[in-house]
């Protein structure tokens, strides 16, 4: 009777709380991502669009590493945790892309540059 108690208690724990290997892998992976992104920016090794793409990619990779290895997502069972995460990601992408999209358009329409303003005035003077 007693022997089955600890096992039924520890099996789900070991699964959902990671191990020393998973934490160390996560730590080293995050360290590599951080230092690679930093080195890329400091060395000015890549051209602008490539560098931005690369550091965004490294940040997303590090996010994935930490979500899986530190926060223990993506391993079976805890589907409600993932459902909440997916919902949050949807809201976050609507807020961020929506704000950038609308405000970029707004500033493009509201504030013409001096050169554009001059051009406009030239066209108006008949």
């Amino acid at each position: 009777m007693y022997t089955h108690l600890p096992t039924s208690q520890t099996t789900p724990m070991n699964r959902s709380h990671g191990s020393i290997t998973s934490y160390t892998t996560g730590f080293i992976g995050s360290l590599v991502c951080t230092l690679l992104a930093y080195g890329l920016v400091v060395s000015h090794w890549a051209t602008l669009p490539i560098a931005i793409g690369a550091i965004v990619l490294l940040a997303v990779a590090q996010l994935g590493i930490q979500l899986v290895l530190f926060l223990h997502l993506g391993r079976g069972g805890d589907s409600w945790n993932r459902a909440a995460l997916v919902f949050a990601i949807i809201i976050v992408s609507i807020v961020v892309t929506g704000s950038l999209w609308i405000m970029y358009n707004l500033s493009a329409r509201m504030m013409p540059s001096t050169a554009q303003m001059y051009q406009y005035m030239q066209n108006q003077s008949w």
């Binding site: 550091i55 965004v56 996010l63 979500l67 926060l71």
Partner: peptide
């Protein structure tokens, strides 16, 4: 402690985004 460590990991995740978007992006 489980909740606290969850919170602590979460703050590190947010910091990665701050590091990338606020600081690294400025120097690209």
């Amino acid at each position: 402690l489980t909740m606290l460590s969850l919170f602590w990991h979460f703050l590190d995740v947010i910091w990665i985004l701050i590091f990338t978007i606020v600081y690294l992006m400025a120097f690209v």
